[in-house]
């Protein structure tokens, strides 16, 4: 897992309209974008970034740490296979609506090749003041202030909200990591928590979860063994059961996976959980400087 804000990034699908906007934003923020791919557009450049036909062509010329996909969800699997076969060790899949069987195949392929996957349906990562890989509004003042807290989020919009609260607390953010809103994602809360526990730039971690699945429950079980304090906010306490809420992952199956049961299990394992986002700064201050 590479959580360094200065790593080398390759943009798959760099010539797309949305990619253009975000490449500009990431470059302005200081991100090391070293290459982009777009079949048939090899040899050109966009915002000064060289464009290659394939990932393999790009990695022969540039050292690439992470490939991020600005690719429609139906082609996420093909793009992931291409990056993995070209030897890229970390991939970020932004697409919302990647078929679950495609994700399952991508994850198996990644495991076989020692590749870390973030997403699908993740907004990417922000390393405040250093770099940004994805579609988070990193440039917003008061939202992504540099600091010592790591945030792990299943959601982009709510990730912004919690980042704003963490910045407001005065501690600031060391890194924001989008885990993804799909039913099946590569890197989970538990995987990222173990990595962040070893990270010297991280003082504490905030988990931004929501109803559905069992990622929060699995994370809760490893939290007592971590050296750093963990905080959380869980969305979906007003949601009815058994109804998918936008995110494919946010479907409550029976009573397990409800926002309430997640809050309860996290609290049982020593996690301080905020009831509303506005409570978070107070809880952080009380625990970390109390």
């Amino acid at each position: 897992m590479n959580l360094d804000g200065k790593q080398n990034v390759l943009i798959q699908g760099i010539t797309g309209r949305e990619a253009g906007f975000w490449v500009e934003k990431m470059l302005e923020y200081g991100t090391n974008i070293v290459a982009g791919t777009s079949p048939g557009k090899g040899g050109t450049s966009i915002s000064g970034i060289p464009v290659y036909n394939t990932v393999l062509e790009a990695v022969k010329k540039q050292q690439v740490d992470t490939a991020i996909q600005f690719i429609p969800p139906r082609f996420a699997k093909a793009a992931a296979m291409e990056a993995i076969e070209a030897g890229v060790k970390q991939i970020i899949i932004l697409g919302d609506g990647v078929p679950v069987h495609d994700t399952m195949t991508i994850i198996a392929m990644a495991e076989t090749n020692g590749v870390t996957v973030f997403g699908p349906n993740t907004p990417g990562m922000v390393f405040p003041g250093v770099g940004s890989i994805g579609i988070m509004p990193c440039w917003l003042e008061h939202v992504f202030n540099p600091g010592s807290i790591a945030i792990l989020s299943r959601s982009g919009s709510l990730g912004n909200e919690i980042s704003y609260q963490v910045s407001k607390s005065g501690f600031g953010i060391s890194k924001f990591i989008g885990i993804g809103g799909d039913a099946l994602v590569g890197t989970t809360f538990a995987d990222a928590l173990q990595e962040l526990d070893k990270d010297d730039n991280v003082e504490a971690v905030v988990i931004v979860g929501e109803l559905g699945g069992n990622m929060e429950e699995t994370a809760a079980r490893i939290i007592p063994d971590l050296s750093k304090p963990v905080f959380a906010f869980i969305a979906g306490k007003a949601a009815p059961q058994g109804v998918p809420m936008g995110h494919a992952g946010a479907l409550v199956e029976g009573s397990s996976g409800s926002a309430f049961s997640k809050v309860e299990i996290l609290r049982e394992h020593g996690v301080k959980v905020a009831d509303v986002p506005d409570d978070l700064p107070g809880i952080l201050k009380e625990t970390l400087r109390g």
């Binding site: 809103g181 929501e210 906010f233 936008g246 509303v276 986002p277």
Partner: peptide, 17 residues
């Protein structure tokens, strides 16, 4: 009315809270 599933659920939660 909100953007993103997570923020929309949170808005509902805050209204309820």
């Amino acid at each position: 009315l909100a953007n993103g599933a997570g923020l929309t659920m949170t808005t509902m939660d805050v209204i309820k809270a």
